[in-house]
Design a binder for these strands. Structure first.
Lengths: 237, 237
DNA sequence: ACAAAAGTGTTACGGTTACACCCATGC
DNA sequence: GCATGGGTGTAACCGTAACACTTTTGT
């Protein structure tokens, strides 16, 4: 076989093997102290009843991103949520039924907002990311990848806010970053840092649920953030 | 249709649409001043003769990474080279022939080492990454993604060395980083920074080809690097 | 009055940046 | 002897890290 034959073979559409494409979503939420992920019990054999990421198969007329969006909507009732591709997993026997390649996406949602009905319908449950049960197939691997990506991304983009309610306290924001980065941060340094970014709006409202004194609520101000094109958002671990 | 029906449909293997999977490789090289990419003229219709990334279709019994490795070997004759997944591209009509999803990988090779014969066989050519011709399909998009990923990765991992010969001068290393990051760096600061990382071995040899005085050659010392588990490699733009 | 969380500034340190002159050699 | 690229050190600056006490208010 000459090299030119090889060249042709690589590009030959006819002989190629088609495979199934899946999309699996690592849905992150945040609850007081913990970074959580939404898992479901798998509804079909094999591994029926085992914990799994939410996922589905790609339809011929949609992009991977559209499929991920559809799946998120199905399981949470939410749309317009922050989502990012993580990686594509292609081990030959990762799905025992049939050769299936899966692209993982992670998504950030405000844990209070998603539909509790849907969670019930799908036997879904929130687990601490650090204490989740063993998952089917290579889903544990996907979660690990997604966590790494999330950690990286939160150092350069202000995406943490997607995990919080619209109004939040500094303390909550700090705990969120501590959960994502699995670290402890100094209260004063954190507040100074956040304030120096000048991307929050301080409200006149206080959250009175966690202390007698109450703590001020803040809002992420997209306009302020956009106006800072100069400085880039940068948070260090 | 109840939610439980929807649940089932999402997971139903039968009704799913299978698609072709391609792998496209952004092969980076470095030549004196420029970051380059290896392109080929596409051998088949449609878009026959147009410039394209090197790529191929996934075989049923291989992983995406194996396919990428195979493609790299085919076009460069090299194995064991640094490679990283970039992203998966899935626009419905990205390939006009048939629904094809493509995962892009970038690879770093020493431009002097690859087989010139193969380059000739495949009508391949090196282009400056910044002055490449328009590519077929969404390949321009892939290159952009790969560049971004490369830029990011080189700030935290010592992978730049994969683009250089085994022995190189400080000046070459600096020019490499300048090319990747599209920036100018201060000579003294750069050398101080690199030396502080303590990951190079300074040789007694000099490269006499670029100046009358000659400049010392260095080698990346993997052992030294491994021993620095404490400090992580960190280069800033 | 006291318990429990919120809020607030300053100093020390370390890494990054800016910057200019001498060296070695081939021609 | 001169032109060319190679090699070298220090001081100013800036962001990060460390650190402790007062405030508020419900009980």
């Amino acid at each position: 076989m000459s090299l030119n034959d090889e060249h042709t073979i690589i590009y030959s559409y006819d002989q190629a093997d088609k495979v199934l494409i899946a999309v699996d979503c690592i849905i992150f939420g945040f609850d007081k102290e913990d970074l959580k992920i939404l898992l479901v019990r798998r509804g079909i054999e094999p591994e029926k009843g085992k914990w799994s990421l939410v996922g589905g198969l790609l339809k011929k007329e949609e992009t991977l991103e559209a499929a991920a969006t559809r799946i998120l909507d199905t399981y949470t009732g939410l749309s317009g949520i922050y989502m990012e591709e993580v990686a594509t997993f292609s081990e030959v026997n990762r799905d025992p039924v049939e050769r299936t390649i899966s692209t993982a996406y992670y998504a950030l949602i405000n844990i209070k907002e998603h539909s509790k009905n849907l969670v019930k319908q799908f036997s879904a449950k929130w687990f601490s990311a650090s204490q989740a049960p063993k998952l089917i197939f290579d889903h544990d691997h996907m979660v690990q990848y997604a966590l790494n990506r999330l950690r990286l991304r939160t150092t350069t983009e202000p995406i943490g806010f997607d995990l919080l309610p619209e109004k939040f306290t500094m303390r909550e924001l700090q705990k969120l970053y501590e959960a994502i980065w699995d670290t402890k941060l100094d209260k004063r340094n954190f507040i100074n840092k956040i304030n120096s970014l000048d991307i929050l709006e301080k409200l006149d409202e206080k959250d009175m649920t966690t202390s007698r004194k109450g703590s001020y609520l803040y809002k992420f101000d997209v306009e302020k953030y956009r106006q800072q094109n100069g400085k880039s958002f940068e948070m260090k671990v």
